[in-house]
Simulated scan of single mutants.
Amino acid sequence: MSAEVSTTEKPALWTRNFVTVAAANFLLFFSFYQLLPILPLYIIEKFATDNATAGFIISLYTIGALACRPFAGFLVDTLSRKPLYFWTFFAFTACFLGYKTVGILPILAAVRFAHGLFFGISSTASNTVAIDALPASRRGEGIGYFGISVNLAFATGPMTGMFLYEAFGDTIVFAISIILCVIGLILVQTLNVPRKEKKPHAPLSLDRFFLTRAIPQFVNFIFVGFAYGPVTNYIALYAKELGIGGSGWFYALIAAGLIMNRIMTGRLIDRGYLIHLVGTGMTLNVVAYFILAFSHSPITFFVAAFLIGTSLGLIFPGYQTMCVNLARHDQRGTANSTYLSGWDIGIGAGILTGGSMAGYFGMHQPVFLACAIALVIADVLYFTWTARHYSKNKLEG
């Protein structure tokens, strides 16, 4: 009887390493997200500049993260992961101090770019260390749970930062971000990550910087990020145009949908439903953005938010699992950086395109309609190209 139980027993998911890296990842993202709503105000007040200049400086974070993604994957796959993770996390932490101490706008811009650069490498290392800690048979489930660390930071960070800023000023926000990052560094230092075996250096090739086997997933994820970019920057303005108050709840409902679905999605991925779950998420995302684009009441506005979160809860762990399953074991860092690069490119393109469209039309409704149309294209691509490509080329999972 006992022998039968042991053969069906699942390998452990909540190992010490996995819990530790998830907690450190939460602190990394929370420290960033709580700065997000106050940074434009801080830059405009301290440097007496305009909104356009503040917006450009803030965007340098995304540019820095995107610029390093291909190299981040190469570094994670080539160097010892724990030291790389620790020191890039340390540099990320030091940038918070830079915001408060620099007094010249060009240097602040350099700090912002560096912040994105170190974030890009440390978040790639964090994802890869987490995946290394997961048993292959429960990888989808584990990726889903790990993603909750980001979703919780997204749900609680901006509200916390804004509350602290309004109550105590900007200094306390920067101080708390630094303290939380220091705790994260301590957690990283306690990780038990095996040292990489020294192997002969393979010749440099494109697939050491970008997972060419995951091009369809990369392209599809750009479209998903493109649609989400305007949500990050323009949803409050769109709500104001519609006469809807409490736009902060929009993000809370996205986070609720994300967390709810991530908890359920991972187990279904490991049972073989990966392609179907991502397809469902892609189609649901299309529906959500059409509802948002034609929203005229608080009910449809907030329903769209929850549906966006629910669809992303299927899409995020699904695409990441696809990329990892298309990669060799020594390409996991590259797989993660490819996955994250698609998101970064999409977000940046969506924000820039959305801003230009809103300026041209004088309103934000066409922006979200364009996002819905882009997602229709992505949906068609997924079912005609991406899903088939994955079925033919997956290496594991």
Rank of each mutant, 00 (worst) to 15 (best):
E4F: 05
T8L: 11
T8H: 12
P11I: 01
A12G: 14
T15C: 06
R16C: 03
V21R: 01
A23K: 10
A23E: 06
A24E: 10
L27W: 10
L28K: 09
Y42V: 06
Y42E: 03
K46G: 00
D50E: 10
G55E: 12
G55C: 11
F56T: 08
T62A: 15
T62D: 15
I63D: 08
G64T: 00
A67M: 09
A72E: 03
G73Y: 09
T78Q: 04
R81I: 07
W87C: 03
T88E: 05
F92M: 07
C95M: 15
F96Q: 05
L97T: 13
G98F: 15
Y99D: 00
L105H: 08
A109C: 05
L117E: 02
G120F: 00
S123G: 12
S123M: 10
A133G: 05
L134R: 07
P135H: 01
P135E: 01
A136Y: 05
S137I: 03
I148A: 09
I148G: 07
L152E: 04
A153N: 04
A155P: 09
G157I: 03
G157N: 09
M159L: 15
G161V: 03
M162R: 09
T171Q: 11
S177N: 11
C181P: 04
I186E: 02
T190L: 12
P200D: 13
H201V: 13
P203K: 13
L206A: 13
L206N: 01
L206V: 14
D207M: 07
R208L: 13
R208G: 03
T212P: 05
T212H: 03
N220V: 13
N220W: 07
F221Q: 06
G225Q: 10
F226T: 07
A227C: 10
Y228R: 02
V231D: 13
Y234I: 00
I235W: 07
A236G: 02
G246K: 01
F250N: 05
I263L: 13
I263F: 14
L268E: 12
Y273E: 14
L274Q: 11
V278E: 09
G279S: 07
T280A: 15
G281A: 02
T283I: 12
N285S: 14
V286T: 08
V287E: 09
I291R: 02
L292G: 03
L292W: 04
F294H: 08
H296L: 05
I299W: 03
F301A: 02
A305P: 00
F306R: 02
I308P: 01
I308K: 02
G309E: 08
G318Y: 07
C323Q: 11
T334F: 10
A335S: 12
A335Q: 11
G342W: 01
W343A: 11
G348C: 00
L352S: 12
T353R: 01
T353W: 01
S356K: 11
S356V: 08
M363N: 06
V367H: 02
A372L: 05
A374K: 02
V376T: 11
W385M: 08
L395A: 05
G397T: 06
